[in-house]
Amino acid sequence: MTTMRKTIISLLFALSGAAGVAHADTLAMQDNAPDRYVVVKGDTLWGISGHFLKQPWRWPEIWNLNREQIKNPHWIYPGDVVVLDRSGATPRLKLLKNERAGSNGEVKLSPRIRASDLDNDAVPSIPLTSIQPFLNKPLVVEENELLTAPRVAAGPDDRVVFAVGDKIYAVNMPDPKVGDVYQAFRPAQPLFDPKDPDHKRVIGHEVTYLGDVVVEKPGQVVTLRVKTSKEEIGIGARLVKANEAQYLNYAPHAPDRDVHGLVVSAYGSVAEAGPMTTLVINLGAGDGMDVGTVLATWKAGRPIKKESSNEPDLFTPNERTGNLFIYRVFPHFSYGLLLDSTEPVNVADEVTNP
């Protein structure tokens, strides 16, 4: 079996998925797709692909890359030239490298798989600035995590709120070590699974990030110092160990199975979410979500007003409103960035395969 044939088979398998979610339709090119595009600082792979494709998330297909090859695609930089090759049966994109090219300027794409922060000037899949605040800070926490989280129990005096530089004491902290950094947060409202008809099943709790604290002296009662403070940290605040922000720059792909979920909340508790808003959905790792999964958002049909009781219940068709790029995954929910939308997205709107 030739290398090219192996690549084609791998590509088809990655795109079809184990549950038979296939993309047999032809890639739809933009009517005014350019012959070439020069990459500039601030570009994203999604945006670059939008110059060529009507469905930007399908760019791995036009690059002819399989799922493993497109993880962490640190291989496009400002100054590179993306060329649309129309010579074959299907259009393909090629890359002319700026200052790193060979004698003819063209390179073979061999993306490296790396689990690291996005570095240098490599072009990210989606706008990094839109998701940076949520990569290592809690927005929603699991029910069990909230119940077992360490808590701020006291200060050095009778005060109940603390700011930068203050000493505080915490309990229920497992295996603390000097220098460990914890994030303080205040629990807000519970998030109920919209799929539960009784609206009683809690899938997580919205939280407000307050600041960072650092361990100074371990013990049954741990001594900490407030390192940074976005808001005042009060008695009863919960703590979660800080992790280094790590953005896995996966390229977009459809789920490997048929999925159907709902929007649980929008960052900032906005009633109507627009582009570049982080949404929380009630699908997590157990539902097949991973970083880079793309979902379609849908507005549910509205009931048709009846003129008589004899008329059947009818609804307007569901309407597709946008594309959601999943960038952080938890067991029972995920964070996704709404990259584009034709109308506002609301809580309880549907998300499905694109």
Score class of each variant (00 low, 15 high):
L15D: 13
L15I: 00
S16R: 15
S16V: 15
S16I: 15
S16G: 13
S16D: 15
G17C: 15
A18D: 10
A19P: 06
A19L: 12
G20H: 09
G20N: 00
V21P: 06
V21M: 09
V21R: 14
A22G: 09
A22Q: 09
H23S: 15
H23C: 08
H23D: 15
H23K: 09
H23W: 12
H23E: 15
H23L: 14
A24N: 15
A24V: 15
A24W: 14
D25M: 11
D25E: 15
T26M: 11
L27E: 08
L27V: 11
L27M: 12
L27Y: 10
L27G: 05
A28F: 00
A28T: 12
A28E: 03
A28L: 10
A28I: 08
A28R: 07
M29R: 11
M29S: 02
Q30M: 13
Q30W: 03
Q30N: 11
Q30E: 09
Q30T: 11
D31T: 13
D31E: 09
D31C: 05
D31L: 03
N32A: 10
N32Y: 10
N32S: 03
A33Q: 01
P34R: 03
P34S: 02
P34T: 04
P34A: 00
P34Y: 03
P34E: 02
P34F: 00
D35C: 07
R36Y: 13
R36G: 05
Y37A: 05
Y37S: 01
Y37V: 05
Y37E: 04
V38T: 13
V38E: 00
V38N: 04
V39C: 02
V39S: 03
V40H: 05
V40K: 14
K41Q: 13
K41W: 02
K41C: 08
G42W: 07
G42I: 04
G42D: 07
D43H: 05
D43E: 10
D43P: 04
T44C: 09
T44G: 03
T44Q: 10
T44R: 00
L45D: 07
W46E: 08
W46H: 02
G47H: 07
I48T: 08
I48R: 04
S49Y: 04
S49P: 02
